[in-house]
């Protein structure tokens, strides 16, 4: 193994924060860092995605009595104070400025409190996780790219290279049926990839290494949840 270069951890808070209670299905927010290869112990190689999960804090607790539902709000992604609106800042109060907030429904919120920490140590190698992210934008795409329609002939005066074929019958029904697949915007969708394996969990550096690919571009925000 090569020399162990230590990555300094970006601690978001000077004061030590309490650990949030365990969740039945731990959830953590992170940022896609990029991909590399991973050698398993048996020597096989898998494609892996690195997720940075630093500064996950409980930012609010929703209770059945007060809000009508039980949930924990988790914040991620520290930014400069001036990057947030006064309202966002006020919601977080004394917590660091966290740009991304998500709520997780939990059965029991007892023990949860604002400011508690959620770290990568909730995941262990071998765990199966679902990852939710926003896919890369592809722009307005034609039917061939979007729905895998066949293309028309390239030559002999074809005016049909990448067009779709007929969109319906004639006078009856006299309209195009709803939901017919046509050219449309593609990408920037919420996508869930299921059952990825946790290859490495590094609480010290706040990193998760998962098997396979994860939706979205580098630096995009993803949600990792135990399957």
């Amino acid at each position: 193994m090569a020399e162990e270069t230590t990555i300094e951890t970006t601690t978001t808070t000077a004061t030590e924060r309490a650990e949030a209670p365990k969740m039945a299905k731990p959830l953590i927010l992170g940022r896609k860092v990029g991909m590399l290869q991973h050698f398993r112990d048996d020597g096989s190689v898998v494609a892996a995605t690195v997720i940075a999960v630093e500064s996950n804090l409980v930012t609010a607790v929703r209770t059945k009595e007060k809000d009508g539902y039980a949930a924990v709000q988790i914040g991620f992604g520290q930014v400069a104070d001036k990057k947030m609106s006064r309202g966002e800042r006020g919601h977080l109060k004394d917590l660091p400025a966290l740009k991304h907030l998500r709520e997780v429904r939990v059965d029991d919120v007892s023990g949860f409190a604002k400011g508690q920490r959620i770290g990568a140590d909730r995941f262990a190698p071998g765990d199966r996780v679902h990852v939710v992210g926003t896919s890369k934008g592809k722009g307005f795409q034609g039917p061939v790219h979007l729905h895998h329609f066949s293309r028309g002939p390239k030559s002999h005066g074809s005016d049909h290279l990448r067009r779709q074929g007929s969109v319906g019958s004639g006078t009856t029904p006299g309209r195009v049926l709803r939901g017919l697949r046509m050219a449309a915007h593609q990408g920037v969708d919420r996508v869930t990839v299921k059952n990825l394996e946790v290859l490495r969990a590094d609480p010290g550096r706040s990193l998760l290494v998962l098997s396979g690919a994860v939706p979205g571009a580098r630096n995009s925000i993803v949600m990792v949840r135990k399957a």
Binding site: M1, A2, E3, E4, T5, I7, V33, G34, L36, Q37, H38, F39, V50, A52, R205, L207, V209, R218, N219
Partner: peptide, 12 residues
């Protein structure tokens, strides 16, 4: 970001 990937790669 690239340092993270490089460091993780160098460990392997």
């Amino acid at each position: 970001m690239n340092d993270v990937l490089k460091t993780l790669a160098s460990e392997q």
